[in-house]
Design a protein around this nucleic acid. Structure first.
Lengths: 244, 244
DNA sequence: GGAAATTTGTACGTATGTATC
DNA sequence: GGATACATACGTACAAATTTC
């Protein structure tokens, strides 16, 4: 691809720009031939910076557990996984990434019954102020956090879905426990922003990291909304695929 | 949403973190009631920083043309558009955003006949090394750059598609000129990364900006690949919608 | 119209972070 | 590691434009 130029005095430190570029290169498999990052001196020359600056970048990546520097040998790539998340009419989280990770868990972080604000009510086709169940969940694949979601469910239809999710770690299973056997993905909106401190904390991201946001509406087979969800995915670990 | 905390000594300047947060708030319509950004002193208190730091953030947004500060009055929001780009079996660029912008243009930046590398050949179901047409295009909506794409087309089927695209500014029209009346979107992959200097240059982005990358495969009605495209969209101007 | 309050613009000084050599 | 240069962030004070009462 393009030249490895970086820009100064932009509000983003050079070492961070370089760390972000190397992270993407690793993710793209650019260094798969050797399983190593090029030597610091080579990277410094490529980016046109001092070797100390490259060292700062690699130290940040080592902190994230992506590389490990070994004296006298070089800098080893520890992890280069990007999970693919398929989106379709039958979008489900766990089976969707099931064959890409050994262990998939869903953790209930928080839940509460709250009056629906105008936006949520509109999506779920309720009157504003109607009580809804809000559910915050964290999903992990092989121990790595891959998404952080906030969902809203209409009440009283899905009373107790929080307890069911806590037990099963799966939305599909929690729906089944509430008597909903099948559901469909009606619409998904995808955007991307910088991770906020909450994302960094919950998902274990570094500052300046990117999260992709999927806003999704699920309905039952009759087209009645059953869930509106806003899910935040770390962009360096996840990508989406839409099959038509 | 969450608290407006920001983090220090992370390689990303506070003013840039704050600029990014305000840009998203504007995009989300958080300030639509007044059409103004809150006063500098209020923002400074919210983010827990000095007023000068907020001023740096607003200066960056003013540079992007998103806000305009007016002495004694406040800081006016100039632009808060996020174009929605629908993805479906019949995904097309121009009609897809047609009702959201008055003028949509497609500019041919570059084109060349090249041997397909392994990745491109695999997507287009060709032998590696087979000549293909590579086409670089920039798309604008109301004068604002909204995407930068690189497409590959099999030859000799689409010989001259670059000239047809230059004339029409539309892939659909260029396909028609080559005798292809209809085509389907088979698969789309979506990821997000930091804008590289090329993106910033071509799309007019600020450093640290985010681009969403859509890798798309189009086929004719018989399922034969006709185009593989990698398109980069500025995340602060575009979102995707998938309707199932 | 005039005074006060609000809000952005400018200026100086100090401390710390970043990057080079 | 030390010296140097520049960017970042804070603190304070006051000027200039606009709104409010």
């Amino acid at each position: 691809m393009g030249p490895k130029t970086i820009e100064r005095q932009t509000g983003v430190a050079l070492w961070r720009q370089i760390a972000d570029r190397i992270r993407v290169s690793i993710s793209d498999g650019a260094y798969d031939a050797t399983g190593m990052v090029p030597p610091e001196a080579v990277l410094a020359a490529e980016f046109g910076v001092n070797r100390h600056t490259v060292r700062s970048a690699l130290a940040a990546l080592a902190q994230e557990g992506i590389v490990r520097a070994m004296q006298g040998r070089g800098t080893l790539i520890e992890r280069r996984d990007r999970i693919n998340f398929p989106i379709s009419k039958r979008t489900r989280f766990t089976p969707g990434i099931g064959d890409q990770a050994r262990a998939v868990e869903g953790l209930l972080l928080d839940s509460a019954i709250e009056p629906a604000d105008a936006d949520i009510a509109n999506h779920l086709r309720l009157e504003a102020g109607t009580p809804v169940m809000r559910l915050e969940a964290l999903r992990k694949a092989d121990g790595q956090a891959v998404s952080r979601s906030t969902s809203w469910f209409p009440l009283p239809r899905f009373e107790g879905i929080d307890a069911a999710y806590r037990k099963s770690g799966s939305i599909t299973a929690a729906f089944a426990a509430c008597g909903l056997g099948d559901y469909l993905r009606l619409r998904t909106e995808i955007s991307a922003v910088h991770a906020d401190p909450g994302d960094r904390d919950v998902l274990g991201l570094s500052p300046g990291a990117i999260v992709m946001i999927a806003k999704a509406l699920n309905t039952d087979i009759d087209g009645v909304p059953v869930q509106y969800a806003v899910t935040r995915f770390p962009a360096d670990r996840v990508q989406f695929t839409i099959e038509n």
